[in-house]
Computed example of a mutant assay.
Amino acid sequence: MPQTAPPGWPATVPPPDSPGWQRAAVEWLLDQCPADYRGYAGWRRHPIALAWVATRHVDAQLQAMRQAYRDCRAELYEQLPPRAMTEVLANLEAEGLRLRAAARSAAMIHEALEGKRYAPRL
């Protein structure tokens, strides 16, 4: 029976147990981390460790984005005109949504690397 990926699974990563899924998962996880992470061979050799650190990295980015959204008006009020503030807040909101989705996807990949599999809902 073919494996199924749950909602929120990264589109570029095949479902668990599909041919090449771990290689695609590693590439996707590395895309979520700083570019320098690609220079460490250990992340490719140990995908579960990469998933573990990537989830923490994305979670930290999400926390930072939420804090930036909270602080933006107070800290940039005098430096930005009103239209710019609206644009900056919209950008922060969009990035927060992207990071929240990435955090969910990274967590699902980590779970899949630990052996969790998803069954389709009827």
Score class of each variant (00 low, 15 high):
13 V>P: 03
42 G>I: 07
34 P>Q: 14
60 A>G: 11
8 G>N: 02
83 R>T: 03
90 A>E: 13
18 S>F: 08
66 R>C: 13
9 W>I: 08
70 R>W: 10
109 I>C: 02
11 A>R: 10
53 V>Y: 11
62 L>R: 05
89 L>Q: 13
27 E>F: 09
122 L>A: 11
11 A>F: 02
73 R>G: 09
63 Q>K: 07
34 P>D: 14
64 A>M: 05
109 I>D: 01
98 R>M: 15
18 S>V: 03
14 P>L: 00
26 V>I: 09
6 P>N: 06
92 L>P: 01
105 S>C: 12
122 L>Y: 07
27 E>C: 06
117 R>N: 04
1 M>A: 14
86 T>S: 05
64 A>T: 07
79 Q>G: 04
40 Y>A: 05
66 R>L: 14
59 D>Q: 10
36 D>Y: 02
94 A>I: 08
119 A>S: 08
35 A>T: 08
72 C>D: 09
4 T>Y: 15
4 T>G: 05
75 E>F: 02
47 P>N: 09
52 W>I: 14
65 M>A: 14
51 A>M: 15
13 V>S: 07
23 R>E: 10
118 Y>T: 05
73 R>M: 09
64 A>V: 03
17 D>T: 02
49 A>R: 15
39 G>Y: 02
83 R>N: 04
68 A>I: 04
44 R>S: 08
89 L>E: 13
63 Q>D: 10
20 G>T: 11
9 W>C: 10
61 Q>S: 10
35 A>Y: 02
42 G>L: 11
32 Q>K: 14
22 Q>C: 09
64 A>S: 09
4 T>Q: 12
2 P>T: 12
78 E>Y: 09
102 A>Q: 13
113 L>I: 03
47 P>E: 10
18 S>T: 09
39 G>R: 04
